[in-house]
Amino acid sequence: MTSRFRRVALIGKYQASGARAQAGAQDGVMEDIGAFLESHGCEVVVEQSTDEHPEISRYAALSVGEIGRTCDLGLVVGGDGTMLGIGRQLACYGVPLVGINRGRLGFITDIRLEDYKATLVPMLAGDYEEDHRSLMHARVLREGNVVFDALAMNDVVVNRGATSGMVELRVTVGRHIVAVQRADGLIIASPTGSTAYALSAGGPLMHPAIPGWVMVPIAPHTLSNRPILLPDADEISIELVSGRDASANFDMQSLATLMLGDTVVVRRSDHRVRFLHPKGWNYFDTLRKKLHWNEGGS
Score class of each variant (00 low, 15 high):
Gly78Arg: 05
Asp234Trp: 08
Ala91Glu: 10
Thr222Asn: 14
Asn225Ser: 11
Leu151Met: 11
Arg226Ala: 04
Asp270Gln: 14
Thr263Lys: 13
Leu135Cys: 07
His137Trp: 12
Thr286Val: 15
Thr82Glu: 09
Ala61Trp: 07
Asn101Asp: 10
Val44Arg: 02
Gly79Ser: 10
Leu291His: 08
Ile11Asn: 00
Gln253Val: 03
Ala16Asp: 14
Arg69His: 12
Ile238Ser: 06
His132Ala: 06
Trp293Met: 07
Ala248Asp: 02
Lys289Met: 13
Val156Phe: 14
Leu291Met: 14
Gln89Leu: 10
Asp80Gln: 06
Ile111Glu: 07
Lys289Trp: 04
Gly78Ala: 08
Ser254Glu: 05
Gly24Arg: 12
His277Gln: 12
Gly296Lys: 10
Gly203Arg: 05
Ile33Gly: 00
Arg20Ile: 14
Gly193Ser: 13
Ala19Pro: 11
Leu10Arg: 00
Tyr14Asn: 05
Leu113Ala: 13
Pro227Leu: 01
Arg267Trp: 03
Tyr197Gln: 02
Thr192His: 12
Leu141Met: 15
Pro217Ile: 03
Cys71Lys: 01
Val77Thr: 10
Pro208Leu: 08
Pro122His: 08
Thr192Asp: 15
Asn101Glu: 01
Ala150Trp: 09
Ile111Ser: 06
Glu47Met: 07
Glu235Gly: 04
Leu205Lys: 11
Gly68Arg: 05
Cys92Phe: 04
Pro231Cys: 11
Leu186Ala: 05
Gly280Ile: 10
Asn225Cys: 09
Pro220Tyr: 10
Asp115Trp: 09
Ala201Pro: 07
Ala189Phe: 03
Tyr93Asn: 01
Thr222Ile: 15
Met166Ile: 13
Leu276Lys: 04
Arg112His: 14
Arg142Tyr: 08
Ala152Thr: 00
Gly165Ala: 13
Gly297Ala: 14
Tyr14Gly: 07
Leu151His: 07
Val180Gly: 01
Gly78Ile: 00
Glu235Gln: 15
Ser3Trp: 14
Arg244Cys: 04
Val76Arg: 09
Met30Gly: 00
Leu97Asn: 00
Met259Asp: 15
Ile11Thr: 02
Gly296Ile: 04
Asp80Ala: 12
His271Cys: 13
Thr195Arg: 08
Asn249Asp: 06
Ser190Lys: 03
Leu186Val: 02
Asp115Phe: 06
Leu223Gln: 06
Val157Met: 06
Asp51Ala: 12
Gly193Thr: 07
Gly296His: 05
Arg58Ile: 04
Val140Asp: 06
Val266Ile: 15
Ile188Pro: 02
Pro208His: 09
Gly34Pro: 00
Ser298Asn: 10
Ser49His: 11
Leu276Gly: 02
Arg160Lys: 15
Thr257Gly: 06
Val216Asp: 00
His271Ala: 14
Leu135Phe: 08
Gly106Asp: 08
Tyr197Asn: 03
Leu223Ile: 12
Leu223Asn: 02
Ile100Thr: 03
His40Arg: 12
His40Thr: 11
Asn282Pro: 04
Gly296Val: 03
Thr119Pro: 03
Asn145Val: 09
Ala150Thr: 03
Ala35Lys: 11
Leu135Ile: 09
Arg88Trp: 06
Thr50Gly: 05
Arg244Met: 10
His207Asp: 15
Val146Thr: 12
Gly193Pro: 13
Arg142Ile: 09
Glu235His: 04
Gln181Trp: 03
Pro227Trp: 01
Val273Trp: 01
Asp110Trp: 07
Glu114Leu: 06
Thr195His: 05
Thr163Cys: 03
Leu291Pro: 07
